[in-house]
Amino acid sequence: MGGPELDNLIAQFARLPGLGPRSARRIVLKLLRERETRLLPLTEALRTAAAAVRTCSICGNLDTQDPCAICANPHRETRICVVEGVADLWALERAHVYRGLYHVLGGTLSAIAGRGPEDLAIAPLLERVERDRPDEIILALPATVDGAATAHVLTEKLKPFGVPISRLAQGVPMGGALEVLDEGTLATALRARSPA
């Protein structure tokens, strides 16, 4: 269309989540038309992020410093929230409801897909718990079959350390009417009911 460089740029954008070839072409056109205000700042931001952002060696979060700002913050509570991915960590941080530390597993176990404990950051979590003895471990894993199986395996592995382990509650979401909830959510909500 406009040379291999342009085709390659469009192809690179088209591989990103939420984008296809059509959106990629629109983005590339916009960038090239506004070279000074869009393209060059984006290039610089990408180069800087690629050079500076790294994975935290303690929790697995992404940050420009290692240990990350959360792990390095001495005012954080000494409890560890175990999450599946960095996106979950960011979601909890956005909510401003949790002031403890995190551990990013990097996925969930799946006996069917063949993802075992060695494919996830379970061994570093066990080492961390043994070393730091946190006040609590919160398993904030997805409410899926694989997420629940991972939570059960982690509970089993973490039990010997004697640290209190808890899991996120499952049930009726904020603003959710019962009549529109799926049967699975209703069943878990009913099972996890608490005294009024």
């Binding site: 079959v145 059960h152 069943a187 878990t188």
Partner: peptide, 14 residues
């Protein structure tokens, strides 16, 4: 029948 949700609570059932 939400068998997955019903099985999630117990490790053996899951």
């Amino acid at each position: 029948r939400p068998a997955a949700a019903l099985a999630m609570a117990a490790p053996e059932t899951l």
